[in-house]
Nucleic acid binder design. Structure first.
Lengths: 149, 149
DNA sequence: CTGACTGCAAACTGTTTGCAGTAAG
DNA sequence: CTTACTGCAAACAGTTTGCAGTCAG
């Protein structure tokens, strides 16, 4: 699997370095595992520390920015001040964020996607990207149940 | 009109002070005038300075936060790091932001609103709010024409 | 009067940058 | 070799907070 990551970095014109490979595989690990898949720079930095990796916070930021530009991952600005990142998915999706427990759900809706294009076109705007975040309270039993009564 | 603003503040449990009235009317002035209606704290602070008002930046932030909590205005996190504020509109609307000139367009679409509710309901999530931002290139002749060729 | 409010400066958080050393190609 | 990359510390931007004085109710 590391082979593919090396290809990814090369395609982005980036040298193959340990921090980049480490961060990349770290984000891939939690994929497809019902795990959290959205991380802040700080999150990633801490995970690296726990693994005993010697990677500076500045490097984490630099790598994340490079990955963002190379479309290897996507930057989100949920409510709050900091950016969170997720691996660029095969297919676009939008997000539902639980305001109580912070859990992130994903969805993709054809109807909404279509309307967005129509609305932009009507106004003569060339749609580049969009961000749609729904904020609500989920029914996570552990953390959110009280709030749903 | 100041009468109504006083009512607004009272309803929010806030004392009637000059900074609050000034900031409130400042944001109202540019409304319904094809003018920019989305301001950062810094924007507002500068406009106040230009008017010769003696209001500290910290106060601007405090007032904006109080107004946000009182639903007098709405905070947005467009791309980038800072918050921008607009007066809470009568009817909800979403935004299109031009990535070249920064102009903000507003729209409201029943189809999208409806789908959002359905999607949340399907997942057992109580939808509180949402943010939908479309980013694209507008056809503003002054600043954006080159980019649309 | 009294607590809410204000301005100022200092503190904080998230992020970027300058620099000198290190390593990939 | 040469240039991109890294870690560190310092710098930054946006925002919040502690404090002493002021003002609305």
């Amino acid at each position: 699997m590391s082979e593919e990551n090396i290809k990814l970095l090369k395609k982005a014109g980036l040298k193959i370095t340990e921090p980049r490979l480490t961060i990349l595989s770290l984000m891939q690990q939690n994929q497809n595992k019902e795990e959290v898949t959205h991380f802040s720079a700080e999150d990633i930095y801490k995970m690296l520390l726990e693994k005993g990796e010697e990677i500076g916070l500045a490097t984490v930021y630099r790598v994340l920015n490079q990955f963002d530009e190379a479309n290897i991952l996507i930057r989100h600005n949920f409510e709050g001040n900091k950016s969170v990142f997720e691996l660029a998915p095969e297919e676009h999706h939008d997000h539902i964020i639980c305001v109580d427990c912070g859990k992130v759900f994903e969805f993709n809706d054809e109807v909404i996607e279509k309307r967005q294009k129509e609305i932009s076109a009507e106004r003569g705007i060339k749609l580049k990207t969009h961000s749609l975040y729904l904020y609500g309270k989920c029914n996570n039993i552990d953390t959110c149940d009280e709030n749903n009564k």
